[in-house]
Each structure stands twice: as C-alpha cells, then as structure tokens.
Amino acid sequence: MTDQAYNFAYLDEQTKRMIRRAILKGVAVPGYQVPFASREMPMPYGWGTGGVQVTAACLTPDDVLKVIDQGADDTTNAVSIRKFFQRTADVAVTEATAEATMIQTRHRIPEQALTEDQILVYQVPIPEPLRFLEPRETETRKMHSLEEYGLMHVKLYEDIARHGSIATAYAYPVKVEGRYVMDPSPIPKFDNPKLSDCAALQLFGAGREQRIYALPPYTQVVSLDFDDHPFTASKAPHDCDLCGASESYLDEVIMDDAGGRMFVCSDTDFCASRRAEGHVGRLGAAEAGK
C-alpha cells in the first residue's frame, strides 16, 4: 500500500462531511457537546484522536499546519501528528504561530494572540465537565439541557474547603455565552482568559468520548468562581530563564539533584522568537554558549 492510496488527510470524504456537520452544529450552539461517529485512527486513544479527526475534516491543501503539545513543537505527540499530516495531506507545516492557518494543540493556547484567519483545534480527553461528580451520562445531559449547574460549584467549594483556595489549576470549568458549562480541555487556567473573545475559531475534539464542541470567534467565555474567591489566572512567579519573558506560562525544569531548577516558557515558539529578537533571561547566555 502506498501513501497515494489514502484520501487527502487520511479520512474519506463521507467521514469528513459527517465531522463537518458536527462542527457546524457545535459552532451554532457554542459550548454544546455534539456527539459524532468517531473513527478509529492510526494512533492510540489519548494521543489526540479527536483533535486529529477535527483537523483532518478542516484541512485544505493550502493550509499551513502547526502542532503543539504542552506548548512545545518538538515533543513526541506533536512531532508524530505533524508527520502524520505531512504524509497523508502533504500540507506545509510550521513552528511559527503567526504563519500557521491551522493549529492543533494539546493542553496549551499559544502565547501570541490568534487572528481571524486561524483555527485552533484542541485535543480533549474527557469533554464532560460534570463527569467526576455525576457518573451517569443520561443525568449530565439532562443537567446541561436544563442548565442545572449547581454541581459544578460543589467541585469548586470542595477545592476551597480542602485547600483554602480554588486549587483546580487545569481543565478549569467555564460558562460559554451565559449558557453551557464547558471543559476547556486540560489547558492551564492561565490560558482561560484567552478563550474569551478570541479572534480565531476554536474547535474541541474528543475521539474516545465521541464529542465535538466549538467556540466561534469572539465568544464570551467566563471562568466559574465564587464572589469571595474570584478566578485568578495563575502561573509560576518567575521570569523565563531563557528569554526573560514575565507574562508567559512557564514550565519548571529540574536541573540537578542539588535543588537547581529553571523556569522556561512552555510555548517554545514564543521563547525562540523572543531570543532571536535579542531578549536574554537569567540563564539564557549560558545556554546560548553551549
């Protein structure tokens, strides 16, 4: 079997139509989880089978694709998905956020503001924000349709009761346009404010759970909180040690077994372009000299 035996972007056209229908419905009802007939993909569940199907259904031969995993372009998941689409769709790929027309992401939103010409596709493991409190699917569907979201606050209440503050740091629940409560996929809550009023179309695909949902451009997205414990977008209280950025989301890297550590931007493209512009962080010079 040769690569030519595959249809453009792996999936057959009927499957893409089916997925596009689900996407259109998702765009029409922001935050609503649309069931779709998820296909078996040539990668394990948990590796972005939902995101890949959404990307495949949206991809055109002129698109420029960027794939990130936890903000990085060069981790296993990102590399394998990028290669998959290079091989099955022969599209141009990039690591630069600004050049991409389509970005598939796992657990991060790029630091650079997105534009109206871009589509951001999220890989979602568990799309149901109420799942861990209410195991029955019939019940959670009813709760969504009747807008009974008191239970979501019980989760936040438990956080404060146990930890003194809302300890949920990722997959922080949001309310979309005052209607549906949505799981924004496991992005850090630092990224939650970027969901709202975003110029790009945001699509969410959950392959194993067979759900697609969407945020059309400029949708209002509010993170849930209490009046006396308001939502805060938290990050490590440091500057990036490579590029010196103070406003980006940071990864902590353990350097040795003597307590040495460094903080670096999780968005590798953001960090690299800042360093190319001449910004240098605390350890940036030493790194460059290596």
């Binding site: 019980v154 009761a161 146990r162 209490f226």
Partner: peptide, 27 residues
Amino acid sequence: LRMGVTAGGNVGERLMAVGARHYGDIR
C-alpha cells in the same frame, strides 16, 4: 448524599443549585 463530597459540600449543594455564589455565606 454524595458520598465523595464533604459534609459542607453536601449541605451547600442545594444552595448552589438555587444560585448561591458566595463561599463564606454557603459555609
């Protein structure tokens, strides 16, 4: 009852279900 949720959360659930959004008051 919700067995995985604390006593306070169990009592507070109905309050939150009818719109209470102030942690201190609920507690």
